[in-house]
Amino acid sequence: MTEPVLRISEVRKEFGPVTALAGVSLDVREGETVVVIGPSGSGKSTLVRCAHQLESIDGGAMYLDGELLGHRRSPGGLRALNERRIAAQRRRMSMVFQQFNLFPQFTVLRNVTDAAIRVHGRDRSTVEQEARELLERIGLAGREDHYPRQLSGGQQQRVAIARAVLVRPRVMLFDEPTSALDPELVDEVLAVLRTLAAAGTTMVVVTHEMAFAREVADRCVFMEAGRIVEEGPPGELFAHPRTDRLRAFLSRHLSEKEGVS
């Protein structure tokens, strides 16, 4: 079997006395869409934030294409990397946040292209051309010169996704990308995620959207209390939960979301 793009191995994370991740292992293979579900506070967001090194981890190890993340091996044992080296590792991944976190002082076009130009050192006109095409495909043509605050939440989140796509990441991480949106704006963002998944993007999506998980995920991971409780193809997982906890979670979420529609 080929090496996974992202390997998370026995990762532990504590916030003071609270254990957020109690030894989580997850392999994400090339082109795979992994959807992480679970109740609030189960550690889903912490997992992707740790994977992108926005939080340091307290134990375990993470690898991107086989390269150890955050530390280097030295004769005296492992050494934490400095922030510049970590930034270089982050450049091979990208992330979309629940609160969009677009840069308010930049226009839409600048938001999407700035990192690709300034950080990756790619040619401005090529990147801008690519950005305009991408913005058009996700329904944002003509918005290039708007500022983020002039856009709706759904539009802002689509810009944030475009920004994360344009740096050509090995893996994209989504931290509850639709949780801050008004219900009628959720679908336009999920549509973009579907397109990305269909195009073979390697991605990890933390979400509460069960229908989306069932439809798009190659593999679904159920977390609770900082552990992965169950994982598998979504059809199997949703139809035959093996644990009471997943069964309880599913009955709560499937009834309220899909019972209506």
Partner: peptide
């Protein structure tokens, strides 16, 4: 967001 986009 800046760190996530790889800004040093």
């Amino acid at each position: 967001a800046a760190r996530a986009m790889g800004y040093p």
